[in-house]
């Protein structure tokens, strides 16, 4: 088992009232799963993903990730944990505009203190795998949306994470580009055994996954 959420509640106080963003979420995810999170806008999908990614906190409940009790961990350990095991893919790619494709790919490795030669090899390998060697010296603004997201996925993968969290990764892409990214996810999941949790609005994309989690008003349905 990769991670387990038990009775997770998250709320905010607004005007003296408690507004629940997540309500009693129970979830178990095993290694190698490909999960799609669905639900109407405002139902708490991104919130759930952030909690799983440890970027956001929760108010009640237990969260275990690879035998570690996340709810008992200090901020610093938590960030070490997600640094090590989780890769993020964003709807609007979030590449650093001031860095080239190559430099963007290199960045997570810098924070993980890989040696220069190792970094070079890993970046070269990624560029090769994603077929973007020719683009390595371009800046994000010089790429199409699909190409940018390709780089985004490559960046999430480069440090060999166990889990990839993707919040509407194809939200800004046209259908052909979406399909390419989804095929890529599927391949990663099947061939490399990477666990993937994606948020999506599209039934078609959700179908790539092995399991669908539906949310409504912060509850699992």
């Amino acid at each position: 088992m990769l991670l387990q959420l038990k009775n997770i509640f998250k709320w905010v106080n607004s005007g003296g009232q408690r507004v629940f963003l997540l309500k009693d979420i129970n979830l178990e995810i095993n290694e190698g799963e490909f999960i799609s999170v669905m639900g109407p806008s405002g139902s708490g999908k991104s919130t759930l993903l952030n909690v799983i990614g440890m970027l956001d906190t929760f108010d009640e409940g237990e969260y275990n990730f690879l035998d570690e009790s996340v709810h008992n961990l200090k901020e610093k350990h938590r960030s070490n944990l997600y640094k090590e095991y989780i890769g993020f893919v964003f709807q609007s790619y979030h590449l650093l505009d001031d860095l080239t494709v190559q430099e963007n790919l290199e960045m997570p490795l810098l924070y993980k203190k890989f040696k220069g030669s190792e970094r070079k090899a890993m970046v070269a390998d990624m560029l090769d795998r994603f077929n973007i060697v020719g683009k390595k010296d371009l800046f994000p603004s010089q790429l199409s949306g699909g190409q940018q997201q390709l780089v985004g996925v490559a960046r999430a993968l480069i440090a060999n994470p166990k889990l990839i969290l993707a919040d509407e990764p194809t939200g800004n892409l046209n259908s052909q580009q979406s399909e390419e990214i989804m095929e890529l996810f599927k391949k990663l999941n099947e061939e490399d055994g990477v666990t993937i949790i994606q948020v999506t609005h599209s039934e078609k994309n959700a179908a790539y996954g092995s399991r669908i989690i539906n949310l409504l008003d912060g509850r699992k349905v």
Binding site: S79, K83, Y111
Partner: peptide, 16 residues
């Protein structure tokens, strides 16, 4: 802030 957020999700600590 975008750069900061991205760097943090990619593993940068606040001190860094």
């Amino acid at each position: 802030s975008k750069e900061i957020g991205i760097r943090k999700t990619l593993g940068s600590s606040r001190i860094q």
